[in-house]
Amino acid sequence: MKMKQFFLGVVALSVLPVVAVRAEAAQPPLKEVKAAKGHVSSANTFNRLLKKPKAKNLPPAEDGIHDPDNDNTHVLQPPKIAYDGLPTTPFGNYVDWVKALDDNLLQPRYDRFDPTIEPLVMDLDIVREVKSTVPDVVFPHKPHTQWLHCSNCHPKIFIPQRKANVMNMSGILLGQQCGVCHGKVAFPVTTQSCTKCHSKPKPADWKPPKSETSLKNPWN
């Protein structure tokens, strides 16, 4: 009898992870809970919509998109090994790619064949004043032209003329304007990265513009 219980236990244990995987897939996770006294429904938990933090720099065989049954998957390099000694950030690849270049810790080629060709770097900052309390945006050409070519941005993504382009966060979050790269390959948009772009503090006397309705508010 004891043996049977043990086996049942094993079976139950083995089913658990499957159930867990299912629950993760179906969002939001709602369980039927009796509204008994002192029993908070699982519909009312914290972090109902919070996505779990990504595990960092997993090796290919464990990352959920590489097939561990493919022999070559185990030959691919785990990112952690390659990143050893590089400066870190709290987002994206968790690598500060700009600093790594500046400190000469990486020397990616600018030409497919010739490692001696130097990039065409342009040091020109563009300030974009933001109609919001967040600091103004500074677009630095320098780190961009270290990686990219002018034709990667001009004229398809941005007309090369100050203020000639309409930009806002909703577009960026949907993958337009700066979001063509930021949020895909270049550092992503997260709470920790806002000030990378929003880097110029507002003048001390700056006040947020008041909305029309607020100025005309009859109860004020």
Binding site: A25, N57, L58, E62, G64, I65, H66, G92, N93, P188
Partner: peptide, 8 residues
């Protein structure tokens, strides 16, 4: 499981 691939 849910994918945790390298960014990019």
């Amino acid at each position: 499981q849910a994918a945790h691939a390298e960014y990019g």
